[in-house]
């Protein structure tokens, strides 16, 4: 099975039902994508599947064959992606564990809606939980990123 992660092809001989999350973390060593719940409740494992934010913990790897996957590691190698820069400007992270997932949701939102309203942000970002309570700063960061 050949899958494409961050513009790189990997030929893997693995259980096609393995959720993408564990392929990324345990097989490919891409640990920026986090395990939070494993059942699609929390959004810590969010990745982009052809530019749409999806929860990798409930996404069997076989379903992404032929698609292009972007993980947090694929946004930039120097924190230069506009959303990463906005996150730094707003000082969003506390513990930081949920933030890769939050950022991937935000990237997906901004691809779909470049100038999101607060309601758009509520709709797109409510798939993600932050136990540290950084929501105000996430909202601020998305507005910063949208301004470019």
């Amino acid at each position: 099975m050949i899958i494409k992660i961050n513009n790189k092809d990997y030929d893997l001989n693995i259980d096609p039902n393995m959720p993408l999350l564990w392929v990324l973390r345990d097989i490919l060593g891409l640990t920026g994508t986090k395990y939070g719940c494993g059942v699609g409740d929390c959004g810590s494992c969010m990745v982009l599947v052809d530019s749409v934010a999806r929860k990798s913990c409930i996404l069997p790897v076989s379903q992404i064959v032929g698609k292009s996957i972007t993980t947090i590691e694929g946004l930039s190698s120097d924190a230069s992606h506009i959303v990463q820069k906005a996150w730094i400007e707003a000082g969003v992270p506390q513990c930081g564990y949920c933030q890769p997932g939050q950022i991937m949701s935000a990237v997906g939102l901004l691809i779909a809606i470049p100038k999101p309203t607060d309601d758009d942000i509520n709709n797109a970002m409510s798939a993600n939980i932050c136990r540290c309570g950084t929501y105000s700063r996430i909202r601020a960061a998305i507005h910063i990123a949208a301004k470019g």
Partner: peptide, 21 residues
């Protein structure tokens, strides 16, 4: 000052215990 390792966190580079290799 925000947390010093903000840039590493937003790149997914920071290693939590669960990320040990």
């Amino acid at each position: 000052k925000p947390v010093f390792d903000c840039a590493d966190i937003v790149m997914g580079k920071t290693e939590f215990g669960i990320d040990a290799k």
